[in-house]
């Protein structure tokens, strides 16, 4: 029983990353009708936002300590981060320790800006072009973004540790312990997903966007500048991906190709959930996450070797063939 519970937790945890990325992809697809192959790159940029913040916070200056000598006999150098100098040792070190959660605040404006520039600068010109062209140009963009990050941050993964308080394990149920940060990640993703849905459901802005998703032309005829709102939605989708990346850093050290690895999977998730359906994307994300973690149980691997590697693709193929619209796809979207 415990083993099954643990697998469900594992699955929810994996699934929350899939769901967040798929949610952003679906937002872009549902509003703008663009298939965004650069979405994985946005996820990766989010992760590197937290790397950048960590580097900024640990900017330090060197002082010589004449009482201690290093192995060459010179006075040893001591690095003091400016933050520690300004806020005192306790507060400074706490800020550095909490750099990943702080990076959420840092990443939102950056991702919004990147999303805005991307939509206005590039994607805008591709609304009338075939989907294949959109795939190709965003694929090119993904390569460019990835290579730029590689150029400035190097090809090796960079550790972004979770705060000390959250890096241990947590007792979630009697007898079941689980890494604390993964629980945080799950809750965080629920919050983001809830936030996006609430924004669309309960605000006037969200109402207009939903109307635009249903019938863009009529909304335009009513005198609403729907393009501007859709641009903002692109920014929001970019920040959802970015935040998913920021918080993912402590689970898997950010490297420049993490986006590509996630992209393929999240596309599969979107297709399984149904193109253009937000609840479908979230549901499929969690479902596939759970399926994957069950498939990686030792009993199942010994039964069908290698199943954990291919289960998601297998499910996607079956779903596409027997239920072409996906789990919750609407009629008439991309058929």
């Amino acid at each position: 029983m415990d083993a099954i519970l643990l697998q469900i937790f594992n699955g929810l945890d994996k699934g929350s990353a899939y769901a967040l990325i798929a949610l952003g992809l679906t937002l872009i697809f549902g509003t703008l009708g663009v298939v965004n192959f650069a979405h994985g790159a946005l996820f990766m940029i989010g992760a590197f936002c937290s790397v950048t913040l960590q580097r900024l916070l640990t900017l330090s200056h060197e002082t010589l300590d004449p009482t201690k000598l290093d192995f060459l006999g010179n006075p040893s150098k001591i690095k003091t981060p400016y933050i520690v100098e300004w806020f005192g040792a306790d507060a400074g070190n706490t800020i550095i320790d909490w750099s990943v959660p702080l990076a959420i605040l840092f990443a939102i404006p950056i991702m919004l800006a990147i999303g805005y520039v991307m939509e206005r600068g590039l994607i805008k010109h591709f609304y009338k072009r075939p989907h294949a062209d959109q795939i190709l140009v965003t694929f090119g963009l993904a390569i460019v973004l990835q290579e730029l990050v590689k150029h400035y941050y190097g090809a090796n993964p960079i550790q972004t540790p979770a705060p000390d308080a959250l890096s241990g394990v947590m007792q979630i149920l009697p007898g079941v312990v689980y890494p604390a940060w993964r629980v945080v990640y799950f809750c965080f993703s629920l919050a983001i997903i809830g936030g996006v849905f609430a924004f669309l459901q309960f605000t006037t802005f969200g109402m207009v966007v939903r109307a635009g998703m249903a019938d863009r032309e009529t909304v335009g005829l009513l005198g609403i500048d729907i393009d501007r709102r859709f641009t903002l939605m692109f920014g929001i989708a970019a920040s959802v991906a970015g935040l998913a990346g920021v918080m993912y850093g402590p689970i898997n050290a950010p490297n420049y190709h993490m986006g590509m690895d996630f992209l393929v999977l999240s596309f599969v998730v979107v297709v399984v959930g149904g193109m253009g359906s937000l609840p479908g994307a979230v549901l499929a994300g969690f479902l596939l996450g759970i399926l994957e973690s069950f498939a990686s149980m030792r009993e199942i691997i010994t039964l069908i070797p290698g199943i954990n590697q291919i289960i998601i693709y297998l499910v996607a193929i079956v779903i596409l063939l027997v239920r072409p619209r996906g789990l919750m796809g609407r009629k008439g979207v991309m058929e």
Binding site: V35, I135, V264, F267, G306, Q309
Partner: peptide, 27 residues
Amino acid sequence: LRRTGIYFSILTLAFAQMSFALAYSVL
């Protein structure tokens, strides 16, 4: 080929990734 458009792209992608994963591990 039972599907067209982007679904076809994703199906082929899924098959290729599956072959890659299998070639890497089980096979």
